[in-house]
Write a protein that binds this DNA or RNA. Structure first.
Lengths: 336, 336
DNA sequence: TTGTAGGCGTTATCAG
DNA sequence: CTGATAACGCCTACAA
């Protein structure tokens, strides 16, 4: 570990600016943080000095003193999927505009990845936390409560969120897709579900409802998380021999659905005549491919935006809803 | 702005642990940061106290004191594209394992987005910076030099990087694609290029080489950045009337190439017979679709990994290469 | 191997 | 509206 000699500008501190402007350090601080509490004349002097010296405030010091880090941690399984990159993108944008920075935590899909990450992240004293899903270890829940940090959970709809939640019910969504297929006259069903808890919930709802409709679950495959196009292709290839009659497939994501569709084409299985396909996520792919794929749309970007706004409200001492359910809806396209 | 009363655990500080363990605060610090300089016996006592009190170290305070924030800022245009989400993903993973956290900065595609972001981010005194591309405003270059922070630039191959660079030459890559098409006997060419500087460089190399081969540039379209599947479809539809003879198309990304291919199918234009298509990025889509699309592979994940490692080397006082060129290669598939 | 003193750069608080 | 003072919680540097 080498020590860290910094360049000239980084060593300019608030006292230097204060001296140069002929005011107290506290006045410089005010110019930066609460400009309306400073006379225009002194503010001008101070800003000139800041500019001239190339002063870059040190928010580490500021954070220690004020006990507000102005940082938010966002913990998602991965940003490789639009499922999570979309909310993180808008979350970061909205908070950035409010002067907050986002620390990115990637927990992967191992259940214990999150624990260590949250523990590590709390070390930075974030002013708020974005978590994915609402099922966390008891240790984590206690840690979060002790830390007293506002938390917003997305992509899930637990009855009792840790703190705040912006999400939807995956099982319900699975039910809706089963109903949609049944309304289309389907009696034979398949599902390709990824191994993560949320995909499992969608599967559970779907399978349960299929049974209620008296339908036949011809086959189901569990895919790795996160699952992709190739996973969808392989899964379809594996179940292809069972596709003797008209069947409805619910894919774990639009990528999976697309992969299944491409493999069906390669195998000469007609979509939607012999195989009807519904995806999940409304990725650009599902409406850009040919034929476009029916999917369940949940607005990830919107989830990120609302999560950011609720967190901001909370951090500014305002109230924020504990539980926001975002709408999900089936977008019917040519694949069904 | 409300003040921030924290829970019980957050108020436990190193002095509390020290008292509970019957040692000096400095000893607790050593147990945490340089365990080998502490006897096993005291380390045990301290760890027990940490556990019992639920102590969560405050890295803000530690950072102020040590002048090392253990944070790295990663600034990319967006994480909505695999182009950038892949390197950010591995970058974050590798640094996370080394005890660093990544602050995410999304600069968009407006040229001035980066300036403000870098300025804001330096305020946190990051120990290192990841930037996208190597063309930054003079103001930024000066700011970075003054800050004395290690910087690694990815996705580009400027002759004189700001500090370190892990990338490749986009113009050269455009040339290679033109050569590849020419070797396939093509004489008519098209390109769909996004508006960002790197896509523009690929276009420049491609167009230049096409001319050198005496080929005809039948058409070109500039797409918005970031461009997607739909952009590719629309662009192809616009130029379709010109596709009277066998033509080779270079797309700005695999998404664009895929969009073009789907639109061609919809219009009854045979791929690859009448229209040969090469994409860029080797996204999963290009090898998962039917037919799979020829593409230029650049390993974004690898770029992120190397960038992280070089930054780590530098931060630990070791030497790191100024300029690493990662290989790009054309992966030939059925679309050409 | 462990402890002591002092300061990192800023802001809350109170006084003027 | 402006200033003085005292933390914020930890680590560097030195000493024992």
């Amino acid at each position: 570990m080498s020590s860290r000699p910094r360049g000239p500008a980084a060593s300019v501190k608030i006292t230097d600016v204060a001296a140069a402007a002929g005011v107290a350090p506290m006045t410089v601080s005010r110019v930066l943080n609460t400009p309306d509490r400073v006379s225009e004349a002194t503010a001008l002097k101070v800003r000139e000095a800041i500019e001239r010296l190339g002063y870059v405030p040190n928010l580490i010091a500021g954070g220690l003193s004020s006990r507000r880090s102005r940082m938010i941690a966002a913990i998602v399984p991965t940003i490789a999927s639009p499922m999570f990159s979309a909310p993180v993108q808008t979350f970061t944008d909205v908070l950035g505009q409010a002067g907050y920075h986002v620390m990115l935590g990637l927990s992967g899909y191992k259940p214990d990845g999150e624990d260590a990450l949250i523990r590590a992240v709390l070390t930075r004293r974030p002013d708020g936390l974005l978590l994915t899903g609402a099922s966390h270890s008891p240790a984590v829940r206690r840690l979060l409560k002790d830390a007293g940090v506002p938390v917003v959970e997305i992509w899930d709809a637990a009855e009792h969120p840790t703190d705040m939640l912006v999400g939807f019910d995956h099982a319900e969504l699975g039910v809706a897709v089963a109903d949609f297929f049944a309304a289309g006259g389907h009696t034979r069903f398949m599902i390709f579900a990824a191994g993560d808890p949320r995909a499992a919930a969608r599967r559970e709802g779907f399978v349960r409802r299929v049974a209620q409709h008296g339908g036949t679950l011809v086959a189901e495959r569990t895919l790795p998380a996160p699952s992709g196009i190739i996973d969808g292709r392989l899964a379809l290839r594996a179940v292809a021999p069972l596709l003797t009659e008209r069947t409805a497939l619910f894919g774990s994501s639009d990528n999976v659905a697309f992969g299944a569709m491409e493999e069906a084409r390669a195998l000469g299985i007609a979509v939607p005549q012999r195989l009807a396909i519904c995806g999940f996520g409304d990725f650009e792919l599902s409406r850009g491919c040919e034929p476009p794929i029916t999917t369940v749309s949940v607005d990830g970007a919107e989830m990120g935006r609302v999560a950011a706004e609720n967190l901001l409200a909370r951090m500014n001492g305002r109230a924020a809803p504990r539980r926001v359910l975002v709408p999900s809806r089936i977008i019917e396209r040519a694949s069904t």
